[in-house]
Nucleic acid binder design. Structure first.
Lengths: 188, 188
DNA sequence: GTCTATAAAGCGATAGAC
DNA sequence: GTCTATCGCTTTATAGAC
């Protein structure tokens, strides 16, 4: 019997996959155990408070990735147009390789809503915030920048829904490309 | 003991509310019974195949509403600009009074995904399709119209996510208003 | 058409051996 | 750190009286 020993971060990574594929509620411990090969014992060793801890850990991982790869580059960018294009590319790559599911968006539905409202709010508010500031530094007027930023993030999130619904990866690619075009046009 | 007798359509309406508030999976029979006052017996009388039947009935109701209030007006419109504005208004009113949740979008996540893939695909494909045709009749070039239509529906869906996440109704209103502006600008 | 009781299965969580 | 067995509860679904 192969007894694989792993650490918490391996578990978090595996959990993210399960939650993306099955949803948070349907991702039962039996399913998690089956699909990740991690037993109940290990799971409760890493996450003493059970599923709530698991969800929180996964959201923290996603949040950290966006902080590093998306938010921070936007914050420190000198060229707003280049920064916008980089964001589009990173976001496209990210969701393309992760079942086209945003776990923060998934948390705006159903039971979990209240439990993670603060984290979900912060994720989207920060994303819109740093993007709007980048656009302002690029010369876009403040109220305009705010609307443009909300629209861009909303388009990406809606794009994920549409690409899953229509079962067509090109839908998401097209939407992200046009989001980038609109951002560049506003900066011109 | 008040024994209220109702028909299936009353039940469907009540179920739609529960599923929007709690999500499809968390909307357990106990919750449904408590929040709608409809007992197990009645529920299985109306929906012999249980929750799957309930979900299908609710999606059918939503679909019928959109056919009547959104798709058909677009199909028969003579003025594309007026039609686009009417769509924006109807959609805004609809989701504003229904917990800002699109049940078809919710079905692109988790377990139910495969079970309702066909209905979900049809809903979004038809919406995008009729909107694109309306734009073409209004003088927008074909490939342009297609992109514009996908972007509009995606923006609305993303707008619902953002307005729930940021817990701010104005976010959705703003996004719908700007969607309408972009459609009108393309028709100009 | 509605009710209650109940069956059968699955859930999250815990305990204790290793 | 991992495993298995098990507890207590809730779930969907059914049966049968009214």
């Amino acid at each position: 019997m192969p007894r694989t020993v792993l650490d918490r971060s391996d578990a978090v990574l595996a959990l993210a996959g399960v939650f993306r594929r099955r949803g948070f509620e349907s991702g039962s411990l039996s399913v998690i155990q089956r699909e990740t090969g991690i037993g109940r014992g290990s799971l409760y060793h890493f996450f003493p408070n059970g599923k709530a801890d698991m969800a929180r850990a996964v959201l923290t991982l996603v949040r950290a990735w966006f902080d590093e790869q998306v938010f921070e580059p936007l914050r420190t960018a000198t060229d707003a147009g280049q920064a916008a294009t980089a964001m589009s590319q990173e976001v496209h790559k990210y969701f393309d390789s992760r079942e086209r599911v945003c776990l923060f968006a998934a948390m705006t539905l159903g039971e979990e809503q209240e439990a993670f409202a603060a984290e979900v709010h912060a994720y989207f508010a920060d994303w819109v915030g740093v993007l709007a500031e980048t656009l302002e530094r690029g010369g876009v007027a403040k109220p305009n920048a705010a609307g443009l930023a909300v629209d861009a993030v909303a388009a990406i999130q809606g794009g994920l829904i549409m690409t899953r619904a229509l079962d067509d990866d090109a839908v998401f690619s097209g939407i992200v490309a046009r989001v980038n075009e609109r951002l560049l046009a506003a900066l011109r």
